[in-house]
Design a protein around this nucleic acid. Sequence first.
DNA 1: TGCATCTGCCTAATACCTTTAGGCAAGGGG
DNA 2: CCCCTTGCCTAAAGGTATTAGGCAGATGCA
Lengths: 189, 189
Amino acid sequence: MSRAGLTPERLVRAGAELADEVGFDQVTVSALARQFQVKVPSLYSHVASSRDLKTRIALLALDELADLSAAALAGRSGRAALAALGDVYRDYARTHPGRYAATRMRLGPATAAASAGPRHAQLLRAVLRGYELGGADQTHAVRLIGSTFHGYISLELAGGFDHSSPDSQQSWTRIMDALDALLRNWPAE
Amino acid sequence: MSRAGLTPERLVRAGAELADEVGFDQVTVSALARQFQVKVPSLYSHVASSRDLKTRIALLALDELADLSAAALAGRSGRAALAALGDVYRDYARTHPGRYAATRMRLGPATAAASAGPRHAQLLRAVLRGYELGGADQTHAVRLIGSTFHGYISLELAGGFDHSSPDSQQSWTRIMDALDALLRNWPAE
DNA sequence: TGCATCTGCCTAATACCTTTAGGCAAGGGG
DNA sequence: CCCCTTGCCTAAAGGTATTAGGCAGATGCA
């Protein structure tokens, strides 16, 4: 009986692809075992549990997304940087819905700290350096932008903007305009 | 053997409470049967499936939330209305996390149309009537506000703002200020 | 090249959850 | 008071997660 050549990396990669095809919460140890034509318990030498598998997929996705973000931000500032970052997130969510869903998974404190999460925060902060916002307001703005991006993408992905005009792309562009305007005219305390 | 007196309504109500205690996706036909001290298959006379049960919980939550919103909006406009609506959502999500998660469940087109979803859209539109926004911009603004509310609440609920200052309440207040300012000074096309 | 060891994948088994089929009896309508 | 509706039950099958323990292919060392 020949060996299948499983490794944690191959499992995680296949799990990420599976997530994009059938949804992150349909990613199951069983489904993965089926894909590799291997019995279910065989996977347990490579991942500790179903939760472990999903966590690793989340870490992969966070990493990919941070890399894409960093590349898109290079050489841009102001509205261009803001829109570039938003587009990276939005495009990633549309081309890799399962991976994007994975990034929303709740991680433990240690795992979160070791993930690309902090890099994401850094990058968003970098975008806001293009606007002049004092101390606490910068954090408020980071939270606002992060919330809006995540909220919009998650509603769009759920089909919330499907059957009504104007189409989602138009709203997205105008929302980038609006956020840019807001950051340039941030209200005083 | 005395009867337990199950009804769809009691099951849905208990399911909603269970969701708030253990999380919406831990709501299970089995767990509910345990609570009612009844065998699992007995529930299938009252709900069609696990999915049906969850859908009904979602509908209940959407309804409750729309009622609360309508009450909170009565007699308010402008920033006060905006903040009132946001606070209703946010407070509901904190006091009823499981129900709130249920409202994010994807419903079929027919179910969605018959749900309180459209009422939510109406109410948000009503808030925006306090600002002067022309045709398409009103829709863009609805989507922006909806996204920001949902995004913020979901990040907050996931603990995203837990271990960093300033505290979440401050950001929330300032974000209401910022959105109000944005709506009053919506950028031209 | 031959042997020893390691480790990758397997079988067996337990424990949940979901869902369908079919039975018995409690309680309401005649 | 009896019938019959219907609420809850037992039986059973199928899917997922996880642990324990075994066999043999792959690897390393002489």
